[in-house]
Simulated scan of single mutants.
Amino acid sequence: MEKLPKIGLPILIAIIVLIILISKSAVTIGPGEGGVIFERLGEGINTEKTYGEGFHIVAPWNNMIVRKVRQQSVSDQMNVLSVNGLEVKVNGTIWYEPEYSNLGKLIKTKGEDYEHELLDPAINAAARSVVGRYTPEQLYSSKRDVIEQEILDEVTKLLDGQYLIVKRVLVEDVQLPPTIKGAIERKLKQEQESLEYEFRLVTADKEAQKQRIEAQGKADANRILSASLTDKILQDKGIEATIKLSESPNSKVIVIGSGDSGMPIILGNQ
Rank of each mutant, 00 (worst) to 15 (best):
K210A: 15
D153W: 00
I265C: 04
T156V: 09
L170Q: 09
K157T: 07
V166C: 01
V27D: 01
H116S: 15
Q235Y: 10
D205L: 13
K24L: 13
K244N: 11
S141K: 11
S23W: 09
S226V: 14
L118T: 01
I37W: 00
N102C: 09
N62Q: 11
L9Y: 10
E150T: 01
P264T: 01
G32A: 04
G111D: 06
R128L: 10
I29S: 03
R223E: 12
I57T: 11
I213Y: 12
L81R: 11
N63G: 11
I147F: 08
L118C: 04
L118S: 03
V155Q: 00
L234R: 12
I13V: 14
V27W: 00
Y197F: 11
G257R: 06
Q175E: 14
Q190C: 05
N91W: 10
L139H: 01
E99C: 08
E117D: 09
D76F: 12
T28Q: 13
E2W: 15
V58C: 08
I45E: 00
E247W: 04
N79A: 15
S25G: 07
D153G: 11
G268I: 02
Q270R: 06
E48M: 09
I107V: 09
Q235P: 00
E137V: 07
M263E: 02
R67V: 05
E39H: 10
D173I: 07
Q149T: 11
I45K: 00
Q211A: 13
T156D: 03
Y197R: 14
K244D: 07
K181W: 07
Y197T: 12
Y197W: 11
Y96I: 05
D260L: 10
K89P: 04
A221I: 15
V17S: 10
E172N: 15
D236H: 10
P5N: 14
P31Y: 02
G111L: 05
A215T: 11
V66L: 08
V255C: 05
Q209P: 10
Q72H: 12
Q175P: 01
P31S: 07
N222R: 14
E185Q: 08
Q209L: 13
T50L: 04
S248T: 07
R186T: 06
I45M: 00
L106T: 02
L201Q: 13
E33R: 06
R212V: 12
G262W: 05
E99T: 10
K24T: 10
I94R: 03
K210I: 07
P121D: 02
S251E: 12
Q162P: 01
I123Y: 09
T135A: 08
L119G: 01
R67E: 11
Q235G: 10
D113P: 02
G42H: 07
A241Q: 11
L188S: 05
I29A: 00
M64G: 05
E48I: 03
G182Q: 08
Y140S: 12
P10W: 02
G182K: 06
L152K: 04
A126S: 08
L225I: 13
A126G: 05
D160K: 06
A208C: 06
Q270I: 05
N269E: 08
N62M: 04
E43Q: 09
I11H: 02
